[in-house]
């Protein structure tokens, strides 16, 4: 709001807002703190904050006990791969819907979103069998395809909303200037939509990174990403809090860092392009 606020009022709202933000963030913070404590300190009662005994041992242990780099690499390949593949299929579709809308466009978009409403568990067995049959079970390419299909409706929807912000006259100008469809998309539409495409990519990489159902159902060892890595750590419950926290931190750290560095695009992306 354009209105001036008194410093006192601003201080009070700052205090309130930061308290709320810290409460929301606290579980993540607590997990990170716990990951640096010794196991004894992690379960101490009353809980230890500054007086805890700090250590890096949990990370060393998690690193040596599991093949973190492989899980990490699988996560990168699967999340980035599925997003890029999705983009290739979604850009033409979003172009059509945004610039050549028909009576059915809205319905088509809603139908695409509705495919996401099918509970994953409901089709788990058929998909599992299909993947076995196609020979892409426990392979990175299989997960790239599965997660691409999971996120395709979201990618199409986001691109559609971003494309719609681009005035159709500019594409018509390109047509008048002698550009064919391919040149129109490559030289005019895509460069203009870069911010929207970046947000779309970012959000879908995160969604794919955090996907934990198909990644666990469709892998055993070879293609297992970090979501499977963490699942294997949470199995022996209760006792190893510090190590569990360290493993958890390692699983979410890459995306946390990526997200914080690209906050602006992400915030735009998080709204799915649906709200301005």
């Amino acid at each position: 709001m354009a209105r001036a606020t008194t410093p006192r009022r601003k201080a009070l709202t700052t205090l309130a807002a930061w308290s709320v933000a810290l409460i929301i963030f606290f579980p993540v913070l607590w997990m990170i703190l716990t990951s640096f404590k010794t196991e004894a300190s992690a379960v101490a009662s009353p809980p230890e904050f500054l007086g805890a005994s700090w250590t890096l041992e949990n990370y060393a242990e998690v690193w040596s006990r599991s093949d973190y780099p492989r899980f990490f690499w699988n996560s990168v390949v699967i999340s980035v791969g599925s997003t890029l593949l999705g983009l290739v299929i979604a850009i033409p579709a979003a172009w059509s819907m945004a610039f050549v809308p028909g009576k059915k466009t809205k319905d088509l978009l809603m139908w695409m979103l509705s495919t996401k409403m099918m509970p994953a568990v409901a089709v788990m067995i058929p998909i599992y069998l299909l993947f076995q049959w196609l020979g892409i079970y426990d392979s990175k390419i299989g997960l790239v395809i599965a997660l691409m299909l999971m996120n395709l409706p979201i990618i199409v929807w986001m691109l559609y909303t971003y494309f719609k912000e681009i005035p159709g006259e500019i594409l018509e100008a390109a047509r008048m200037d002698g550009a064919g469809l391919w040149n129109e998309v490559v030289y005019v539409l895509a460069p203009m939509a870069v911010p929207g495409i970046a947000s779309t990519v970012l959000l879908n990489v995160i969604l794919a990174w955090n996907e934990a159902f198909w990644t666990i159902t469709l892998t055993t060892t070879k293609a297992a990403p970090l979501s499977a890595f963490i699942a294997s750590f949470s199995a022996p419950q209760g006792l190893f809090y510090a190590k569990l926290s360290a493993a958890s931190t390692m699983a979410i750290a890459p995306i946390l860092i990526l997200g914080w560095f690209s906050q602006k695009q992400l915030v735009r992306g998080l709204t799915f392009g649906a709200v301005k």
Partner: peptide, 16 residues
């Protein structure tokens, strides 16, 4: 449009 040899100036100018 590209085959007609015409040029057009749009209301919004439609610059890239």
């Amino acid at each position: 449009p590209s085959e007609r040899g015409l040029a057009m100036v749009f209301q919004s100018y439609a610059l890239y």
